[in-house]
């Protein structure tokens, strides 16, 4: 049995192990990977950049912990951009495990997360300073990003289609109060906000079919300008909506998140840090595909030659 034959019959567990080792080494060694900006990501950046200070946008964090690694980085990058521009964010989740994700990310981004594990420090290296009350405050901004004024979190409600339709009439229909049981009328950010007419755009960061509901009901029925932040698996399926103009931008997986982090010059962004691992892992997979196919074709040709000789 020669090398190529062995390779084509290699136990898949060696491939798993090899990939895991390669990814860890890529994280330990760290090297720069140039990130090229695509128009679909840039258009989201440009749209937020064009907003005025005080404008309000809706961000739906529709993902569960299983998509945290992929979608948290893009959520952080978008919130970072909103903070810099003074754009106010109304957060919501239509995914059953999304409440924990959304709360974590909003509190982390607002710098009011006092957990000792310091997730914010991990994501925002050098961006925050420790205050006397053991909280962390953004060093680059003149004012804190305050709950109820600069951002709020409406919470989770099941049945995405109905909730999206309901919010089109009035946010208070499905969310009479926010995640922390404060009536929406008492939140400064919600003053003058009745439905989608009072927000500039919506971004759905999702790992599931809520993107379809936002497209069909949010954009189709109410015409809210919509952008999507998607997991890599979903990315290719939604480009048709970009081409048709139903969405104005699309961030696909880690690559898209890395692009957004590059655009907002986000220090210590997880997606940018993960790009070397992506590149190395992709090269490894390509190598295995090539070797596997070579092994298959060569051993097949040898078998044919043996059969011909026997005849």
């Amino acid at each position: 049995m020669d090398f190529f034959e062995k390779i084509s019959q290699l136990d898949r567990r060696w491939v798993y192990l090899f990939l895991a080792v390669v990814v860890v080494i890529a994280f330990l060694t760290r090297f720069d990977v140039p990130v090229t900006i695509t128009t679909e990501v840039k258009s989201i950046y440009d749209r937020i950049e064009s907003l005025n200070e005080g404008d309000k946008i809706l961000i739906a964090f529709d993902y569960d912990p299983n998509a945290l690694a992929e979608l948290h980085p893009m959520s952080f990058a978008i919130l970072e951009h909103c903070q810099r521009r003074g754009v106010k964010v109304i957060g919501v989740t239509l995914s059953q495990y999304g409440a924990g994700m959304a709360e974590n990310i909003l509190r982390t981004a607002s710098g009011t997360y006092s957990d000792k594990i310091d997730r914010f420090r991990e994501y925002n290296q050098g961006m925050f300073e420790k205050t006397n009350d053991n909280r962390y405050r953004d060093k680059t901004y003149k004012k804190d990003w305050e709950y109820g004024i600069d951002y709020c979190f409406l919470g989770y409600k099941p049945y995405p289609a109905l909730v999206i339709l309901g919010m089109g009439q009035n946010f208070r229909l499905y969310f009479p109060q926010d995640y922390y049981n404060t009536p929406l009328g008492e939140l400064n950010i919600m003053q003058g906000v009745r439905n989608y007419d009072d927000i500039k755009l919506a971004i759905d960061i999702t790992a599931g079919n809520t993107a379809d509901f936002w497209l069909i009901y949010g954009n189709g029925r109410y015409g809210v300008p919509l952008a999507l932040g998607l997991t890599g698996v979903m990315g290719a399926d939604y480009y048709q909506y970009l081409q048709s103009g139903q969405i104005f931008g699309l961030i696909g997986g880690w690559k898209g998140a890395a692009e957004y982090e590059t655009l907002v010059e986000f220090q210590g962004g997880k997606a940018q840090e993960g790009m070397p691992a992506q590149v190395v892992a992709h090269l490894t997979i390509i190598l295995f595909i090539v070797l596997g196919n070579l092994g298959y074709f060569l051993s097949d040709r040898r078998k044919q030659a043996t059969v011909t000789q026997q005849v």
Partner: peptide
């Protein structure tokens, strides 16, 4: 895109 997504998840867990 799927490969990228799966590697992201692996990298996330490794991190």
């Amino acid at each position: 895109y799927t490969v990228m997504a799966r590697i992201s998840l692996l990298a996330g867990r490794m991190t």
